[in-house]
Simulated scan of single mutants.
Amino acid sequence: MTSQCEGINSLIRFYVNCKNTLIDFMHNLDRALKEYRNNELIADFKTQCSEPVMITSLEVYQRSASRYFTRNIFKEICNEIQRVGALNINVLSTTLDKVEFSVTALRDPATDRQVEVDRGKNLFSCSCMLFESRGIPCSHVFCAMKFENILEFPDSLIYKRLTKNVKNEFISRKMRVNDDVERVLKFRVGALASNCNKLCDIACKDLADFDKVQSPFQEVFLEEEESML
């Protein structure tokens, strides 16, 4: 995304300038990459191991979004959900499976967006095109979902590239055996760390779950020690 590229450029500019020698440039760039990767690990940890605060009256949509999306994307979705309260909605047309809405802002009725809902296929489209451009459902779509009394987050509005488990799916489906070894290892470490953090957060809250999770780890460690002897 453009915003991601701008963020990376801003981070690199902090470490690199036109007065650097080639050696300075390489060292500073390496520091920038390490910080960027560290920030990504922190973001992954917060996504997997912390509970978001529900800040809108449409908690059902927030709860659903928190289960699927990374923390940063979840915050952007919450901003869209918050805007629903300032929107008005009217039905333009209805057929057997489809309904078309007109969604306007409370203080700016001239700003009109058309939202189409395919009830049979559970598909949504909006003339603002936010989902097509950013992968984030817009406030107009959430307004239509509220009107239609849709409580579950539709699969058609979940852009997999922005979900929590995208790294796991990438490793299992996309990465080939003959890929660069170091690159494969980094992806595996990230995926395992993410799952381990989530498992620790769940298992430490109950003694029975803790013992259940602890036993397989001890068996693996024991097998590794015996194989090294």
Rank of each mutant, 00 (worst) to 15 (best):
G135V: 07
I12C: 05
V117N: 05
Q48S: 04
K186C: 02
C204E: 12
V103S: 04
E148R: 08
S50Y: 08
S172V: 11
P137L: 00
L87V: 02
K19Q: 07
S227G: 10
L58K: 01
S133T: 12
E35H: 04
D30N: 11
D108M: 11
Q114L: 14
Q218V: 05
A110N: 15
K198R: 15
R173S: 10
V166E: 03
R113H: 15
P154W: 02
E59H: 14
D30E: 11
A86S: 15
L207Q: 14
K164L: 08
R83K: 13
D97R: 03
K160H: 09
C200I: 12
E35W: 00
N149C: 07
Q214P: 01
C5N: 05
F131S: 02
N88E: 06
M228V: 10
M228A: 13
F217E: 07
A208I: 11
T56E: 03
D108F: 08
L106F: 12
T21E: 01
E169F: 09
K212T: 14
L11R: 09
S133V: 05
V141A: 04
V84Q: 06
D44G: 06
L96S: 08
K160S: 09
C78K: 02
F221C: 09
E219G: 10
E132S: 12
E51S: 13
K46I: 04
C143Y: 00
K34R: 11
R161W: 13
F25C: 14
K146H: 05
N9Y: 13
L11E: 09
R83S: 11
M145T: 04
K46T: 03
T94N: 09
L229G: 07
K205L: 07
I77C: 01
F147C: 12
S64G: 05
S3G: 05
A203D: 00
D24P: 05
K34D: 10
Q48R: 05
N79W: 05
I77F: 00
P154D: 05
N79T: 08
V141R: 02
N122H: 09
D30T: 09
F217W: 12
L157I: 07
K198S: 11
E223C: 07
K121T: 04
Q214T: 10
C138S: 00
D24N: 13
T70F: 00
N28P: 02
L199V: 02
V220D: 01
A105C: 12
F74N: 04
V84E: 08
M145A: 01
P52T: 01
Q62F: 05
V141W: 02
P109L: 03
C49I: 00
V181R: 14
L87R: 02
L106Y: 08
H27V: 15
E152R: 10
M1V: 12
K146Q: 06
Y68V: 04
R119I: 01
D24H: 09
S3T: 08
F101Q: 00
P52N: 03
E35T: 05
C78R: 01
A65L: 01
E226A: 07
Q62L: 08
Q114P: 00
M1T: 14
Y68Q: 07
A105S: 15
A208Q: 13
H27N: 15
Q4T: 13
P216A: 04
M129Y: 14
N79L: 12
E6K: 10
N17K: 06
R113P: 04
V60D: 10
K167H: 15
V53D: 11
